[in-house]
């Protein structure tokens, strides 16, 4: 290696070329979407009943999933960050798993648990008459399964970073554990909570693999936007592009809104 000082030009050029190629690689598909269909056609496609239904269903499913993630994820994040229970490391690994698991595997696993011949599905059906697969509830569960970890991990990180002295101060002032969480802990982690919730919601909105496996594909009941995009690809490509553009716009808006949280 003969490293000549004062000639960084070539190295910079190589880095610049690769970086430029990367930008083109990421930008080109988006440009492709934009030029594929005329704007008027996009509006016409988005007004179609099937698209409207997918849009409505996606909002319902993703918001329910975000709500469920909050309900279950917040206490879980707190337990992982604060309570030294046995098997905590294992619990954290299990919770993180859906983030790296192929979603279709998640869907298969959900069937094995909540399907009619699954661990819990049989008792659910015969005991309560509840059959989960192919219902909107199943789509919510599938979305929660893959999306909740984003909330849990973000909030747990924030809780770990919190100085316990402030909570101890609140305790000496007579505040109950619940009041401390409400008045000291939650306000302190609010930026992370908002960011985690937004990531969780975005992931739920984009969920495909676990949903189609566990919840099936039925317009108005389990056919969320990503499923509609996939189906439309084969019989109405313009519709697929229009739906994709809508999802793209939502993602961009979310990214812009989160800038403050991630790049402060």
């Amino acid at each position: 290696m003969s490293l000549k000082p004062g000639r960084p030009g070539h190295a910079h050029l190589a880095v610049g070329l690769l970086a430029g190629a990367a930008v083109v690689f990421f930008a080109l598909p988006l440009v492709g979407l934009l030029v594929r269909v005329a704007p008027a056609e996009v509006w016409r496609q988005l007004a179609a009943p099937a698209v409207q239904e997918a849009l409505r269903l996606s909002l319902v499913v993703s918001l329910c999933a975000a709500g469920l993630s909050l309900l279950l994820g917040l206490p879980l994040a707190y337990a992982l960050a604060r309570l030294p229970f046995p098997g905590r490391g294992l619990a954290r690994a299990l919770v993180t798993l859906p983030m790296v698991l192929p979603p279709v595997v998640g869907g298969t696993a959900l069937l094995a648990a909540f399907g009619r011949r699954g661990l819990l599905g049989g008792p659910l059906e015969h005991g309560l008459g509840v059959i989960l697969p192919y219902t909107t509830a199943a789509a919510v569960l599938a979305a929660t399964f893959v999306a909740a970890p984003f909330l849990v991990i973000t909030v747990e990180g924030a809780l770990r970073g919190l100085d316990p002295r402030r909570e101890q101060a609140a305790a000496t002032l007579g505040a109950s554990r619940l009041r401390i969480v409400g008045t000291v802990v939650l306000p302190a982690i609010r930026p992370s909570l908002v960011a985690g919730l937004a990531l969780c919601w975005a992931r739920a909105l984009g969920e495909f693999g676990a949903t189609i496996t566990f919840a099936g594909n039925l317009q108005g009941r389990t056919q969320t936007m990503p499923l509609a995009v996939y189906e439309a690809l084969h019989d109405s490509p313009d519709g697929a592009v229009a739906l994709s553009l809508l999802l793209l716009a939502v993602s961009l808006a979310l990214l812009a809104a989160l800038r403050g949280h991630f790049f402060k």
């Binding site: 000496t172 505040a175 008045t183 000291v184």
Partner: peptide, 20 residues
């Protein structure tokens, strides 16, 4: 518990609640 003791504690570095 700390709550039940009803002491007044002034912590090192004060530990004020930043968002209030």
């Amino acid at each position: 518990s700390p709550q039940e003791r009803g002491l007044g504690v002034m912590f090192q570095g004060y530990c004020l609640f930043e968002h209030m």
